[in-house]
């Protein structure tokens, strides 16, 4: 009877991943029944484009959640990155080639501070990142003086070199006949890197152990604090990257941009199978979660029943997906017993 265990384990993976895949397909079919044009390449590409920022933010959040911590500040960091880039480049005249790496470094430093406060200073990461969420929003308001920026129309007295503008906008330019945005390739590239780190590197192997049982990891002398700080730092860099890419795509930034991304990112990660108690989660799951959310958003935008529908669906899908996960794991443990 125990001979079936590997089978059961793989069965569970299929059910879990399959549940998400099934949800994505069912939602697509339902939308197609209401609107015949839904199942098309153009809509697919549009969904992929609109999932980018949630997916890239989700990659970082997945690392932090697997390590057993939480990061509420990724959305705010996304906004701060976009604003600090606008201010240093458009207002400050710093060349884009310096402003971009600077923004990524700021993301890393913010993440590192979150990590250090959550480990060495022993402040719960929920509290630390609730604080940095507000702090980053405040800094966004401060540096932008509460105004919006667009590099195509710089404020009086500033000007943006044409070459630099072309380079910046080109980061997410549309490619080919189907208007495939380059942002999608950035997302795929980031997912490949983070996926490799999580699933094929010593860092990822240990991160699961640390998130599953931090006390045991300490007694086994694994570098618990260092790895958690690295996970937070990666989340900061990825949030900055998402902010930069969306700024390049939309070409405008506001002081409060990104704040509303906070909870959809969490939804994507937990729909993807990550556990808020740590030690569990995958990159492919997070991407699937982000895709499902973008699919719902796009489909509801096409049907346009009103802005209420998107929020209601987000709520139902989040609780439903996690509820399904708990029901499935109970089902599995009953079968195993």
């Amino acid at each position: 009877m125990t001979g079936k265990l590997p089978f059961r384990a793989s069965f569970a993976v299929v059910v879990r991943a399959g549940g998400l895949v099934a949800a994505i397909i069912i939602v697509a079919i339902v939308f197609d029944l209401f609107n015949a044009a839904f199942l098309s390449i153009d809509v697919g590409i549009s969904i992929l484009r609109s999932m980018c920022s949630v997916a890239i933010l989700g990659l970082g959040l997945t690392l932090v959640i697997i390590s057993g911590e939480i990061d509420l500040s990724v959305g705010a960091m996304y906004g701060f990155a976009s604003n600090i880039l606008a201010v240093t480049w458009i207002l400050g005249g710093l060349p884009i080639y310096l402003a971009l790496p600077l923004t990524l470094v700021i993301g890393a430093v913010v993440g590192m501070c979150n990590g250090i406060l959550s480990t060495w200073a022993r402040i719960p990461s929920f509290i630390v990142t609730l604080g940095s969420y507000n702090l980053l929003y405040g800094l966004s308001l401060l540096v932008t003086n509460a105004t919006t920026f667009n590099p195509v129309y710089p404020p009086d007295g500033s000007n943006v070199a044409a070459g630099q503008l072309k380079f910046f906008v080109g980061l997410t330019r549309q490619l080919g006949a189907h208007q495939l945005s380059a942002e999608i390739f950035w997302m795929i590239g980031a997912a490949l890197v983070v996926g490799f780190v999580l699933h094929y590197s010593l860092f990822g192997f240990r991160l699961y152990a640390i998130g599953g049982n931090a006390a045991a990891a300490r007694l086994a002398r694994l570098p618990v604090d260092k790895y958690k700080i690295l996970a937070f730092s990666a989340a900061g860099v990825l949030a900055a990257l998402a902010g930069i890419l969306d700024f390049s795509f939309v070409q405008t930034t506001q002081p409060d941009i990104g704040l509303s991304q906070t909870f959809p990112v969490f939804a994507a990660v937990v729909i993807g199978g990550a556990s808020l108690s740590g030690g569990k989660g995958t990159i492919i799951g997070t991407l699937g979660g982000a895709f499902l959310l973008a699919e719902l958003q796009t489909g509801l935008a096409v049907l346009s029943p009103g802005p209420y529908a998107q929020q209601i669906f987000l709520g139902v899908v989040t609780v439903g997906a996690v509820g399904l996960d708990i029901a499935l794991s109970r089902f599995r443990s009953r079968r195993a017993a």
């Binding site: 094929y200 590197s201 010593l202 860092f203 990822g204 192997f205 240990r206 699961y208 152990a209 998130g211 599953g212 049982n213 006390a215 045991a216 990891a217 007694l219 086994a220 002398r221 694994l222 030690g279 569990k280």
Partner: peptide, 30 residues
């Protein structure tokens, strides 16, 4: 509960304390 990682497999639990060079190459690849 203080020595094992409940979220890992038997094999990964056995190898959990190892590092380079036993379970990863010099670039940290498993």
């Amino acid at each position: 509960s203080e020595s094992l990682f409940h979220n890992l497999t038997v094999g990964d639990n056995i190898l959990a304390r190892l590092a380079r060079p036993e379970i990863a190459n010099i670039y940290g690849r498993l």
